[in-house]
């Protein structure tokens, strides 16, 4: 069987890609996608921990389902906000959101 650490490494890599995406990308949609990547990394972690550590208790899987649900809710709210901004300014580039600064 593949050792647990492999899964953790994959998930850590995925999380870091997401992290990089949020920081480096300038398009709000791409940033939202990067956030979703970090949540998927969490899911890999949760399922792997559940399978290897305590497959008897369903809490790990239940948690993964909650993360999926939350990710869907966040995507819904995020896309709604993005569309609403796009209608106003014809742009979803983060750097152009600059009304508010000191």
């Amino acid at each position: 069987m593949i050792p647990l650490s492999w899964y953790l490494i994959v998930s850590a890599c995925l999380f870091c890609i997401g992290l990089y995406g949020v920081m480096a990308r300038r398009n709000a949609v791409a940033m939202l996608m990067a956030v979703e990547l970090t949540l998927n990394a969490v899911n890999i972690n949760l399922i792997a921990f559940w399978r290897y550590n305590n497959p008897g208790e369903p809490i790990g899987v239940a948690w993964a389902i909650f993360v999926l649900t939350v990710a869907a809710a966040e995507a819904a709210v995020g896309l709604a906000l993005i569309i609403s901004i796009y209608r106003q300014r014809d742009s979803v580039v983060a750097e152009e959101l600059d009304i508010l600064k000191y």
């Binding site: 906000l81 901004i85 508010l100």
Partner: peptide, 8 residues
């Protein structure tokens, strides 16, 4: 804009 920043 504030909603977008807070959300991201």
């Amino acid at each position: 804009e504030s909603a977008m920043k807070y959300f991201l």
